[in-house]
Design a protein around this nucleic acid. Sequence first.
DNA 1: TCGACTGACACTTTTGAACAGG
DNA 2: ACCTGTTCAAAAGTGTCAGTCG
Length: 462
Amino acid sequence: MQSFRDLKPNFSGPPPAGPDPYLQGNIRLTLEDPDLWKTFHGIGTEMIITKPGRRMFPHCKVNLSGLIPCAKYILLVDMVPEDGFRYKWNKEKWEVAGKAEPQPPCRTYLHPDSPAPGSHWMKQSVSFLKLKLTNNTLDQHGHIILHSMHRYHPRFHLVQADDLFSVRWSVFQTFSFPETSFTAVTAYQNTKITKLKIDHNPFAKGFREEGTNKKRRANKNPASLEKRAKMSDTLNQDSEEDSPPDFCRSSYEGYDAEEGDLPKRKEGDTVKEERYSPWAAEREHSVRTESPAGADHRDMYNTEQLVPAPASYQPYRFHEYGKSPSPSSSVGSSSSGSIRSSFESRVPDVATVPDHDSSKPRTQEVGPSSCGPQHLPAPQDYTGVLNMSMTPTNKPGVISHHIYSPYGAEQSLGQWNGPGPAQYPPPHHLTAEYPTQAVHHGYHHGNVAEWSQYPLFSYSCW
DNA sequence: TCGACTGACACTTTTGAACAGG
DNA sequence: ACCTGTTCAAAAGTGTCAGTCG
């Protein structure tokens, strides 16, 4: 199991009144199914993105501990570009194919249970199963928009807040897991990944060797069969013989393709996995290339707590600036680089809510929730809060903004979204960090939808 | 010509409504 | 009237593949 290293409050602005006891806890956020993730990561995880939106597999699932049981927390996920490049799959390996395309509208997936007491988050693992990825920049469903052939990794944000509105005064704690990085694709490039997905994703059972989906295969034309045979040969070759030079052989060996079972790794095996994936080596040399905003800008607002990986991950987490980003430049290892320096020493991020909110009664704002009998707010509860906002009302303190919610009651605002950035430029406190984006002056955040449309963290979107 | 992308397809799991029984 | 468990159809999630597009 992994846990993040020492917890640092990532809040630099005026601190909440009095010492925040929540920052002193031993909050742990661990990734579930790490072995599965590692298996994928060892090959080079790919995630399909489609216009209507595609779930991730493996999907993000985390365990939380160390939270204040009676305090409410909000859990979010967003996707961060790994670097400033676009990639292509060429001859069994990923190669840089140019600079990254301009970042699509950043969106943050809010866990539908949010906000919920710490006891709820700790009760069982928290799944982001319904998080969907899309390549449709005009997506109206609130899915997370990514570019195909670009690399990303999910970040988890934990916010102690009673509701969305109090997020503004809350402290973000950010976590990421090296093994969850992936390449967004519209069609699988690496046949090994395809096989892994088929073997582990129950929905793809029909494509397993022993599956019943033979009719379709029988319908294939000879050319397809031949092609598939080639693929199969390649796969077998890869599995049985040497992996392509740019793949981490040792890591892939851990995957028994025939059995389809997760590798049963012993602790001692981790040494073999020092270079975890085609990307691992890149990490060793890698760079976060110049982005319009620049790494500095991206680093300013939050403290990302990279979850310490086992020893085997160390090289992955080390990287330097100014070297080739090519994932295929796997040779060589330098374990002496800075530990994801781009994520360190950040000024804490402070989320904001629409200015209008400041006028609303702060009955449930910062500070510990009173530890009384608390009912777990079901998604409906949360929805109810949001519905208050969505429904015009005359009640004082109740915001009557229109919040776009593509979901039903259960999923209202499960994914924050809204109109494109052109319509809703970044909020004030972020504009300075968006030198290349439309700077908006005198803008008032009209509602949560508008606010949530913004990237929560400037460096996640340039 | 080629690579990226799209949509239809067959298959699977999940979900929820309808029903029966206690 | 309620609760629980079962059944079944619809919905949703998969990778495959042929075709389209730039």
